[in-house]
Computed example of a mutant assay.
Amino acid sequence: MFGRRKPTLREAGDEALLDLIYQVKDKWRSAQKTQANVRGLDQTLEMESKIQQAKFEFLYRQARQRKVASDAVSREVASRNALR
């Protein structure tokens, strides 16, 4: 009511972007686990993992551009870059 600030459209978009990043990150992890657990490596499984990784990287770059990246997402990218 009084003294409360209405969330702006940008803030709502930033929250939606972070939610989407977390969803894609979970899908990427599950694709990696599936790829690791399957004996015969199938090209479709490998492609699915790469697609999810590309989606995550794109969304992460968008979040960085908007200066919205959370600590959890930043730690994920930092740990992945350390392994390269």
Rank of each mutant, 00 (worst) to 15 (best):
D19T: 07
Q62N: 12
R66L: 03
T44V: 10
A12K: 08
E57T: 07
Q35A: 09
K33R: 15
A12E: 06
T8K: 03
S79N: 11
L41F: 03
S74V: 14
E76D: 09
L59K: 00
V24M: 00
R75G: 04
F2I: 14
F2P: 06
R64K: 14
A16P: 03
D14L: 02
Q52L: 14
K6W: 13
A69H: 00
W28N: 00
Q32Y: 08
S70L: 10
T34I: 05
G40M: 09
Q53V: 05
E57R: 09
F56W: 02
V68D: 00
E15A: 13
K33E: 12
G13R: 11
K33A: 11
I21E: 01
D42T: 06
T44C: 05
R29Y: 09
D26F: 08
N37Q: 13
S70F: 07
M47H: 10
A82Q: 12
L17T: 03
T34K: 15
G3N: 01
V77K: 02
R5H: 09
S30P: 05
L45K: 00
S74Y: 04
A12L: 06
Q35N: 11
K67L: 02
L83A: 15
M47R: 11
K67P: 01
L20C: 04
V24H: 00
R4F: 14
G3A: 00
Q65N: 09
P7T: 07
E46M: 08
F2Q: 15
Y22R: 08
P7E: 11
T34A: 08
S74T: 15
A12F: 03
T44R: 09
S49M: 02
Q62R: 12
E15Q: 13
L41Q: 11
A72Y: 07
N81F: 10
M1H: 09
A12T: 05
Q23G: 11
R29T: 04
A31S: 02
Q52K: 15
R64G: 05
K27R: 11
Q52V: 11
R29Q: 07
A12N: 05
M47N: 10
L41C: 09
L17A: 05
A36R: 12
W28F: 09
R80D: 14
A12C: 04
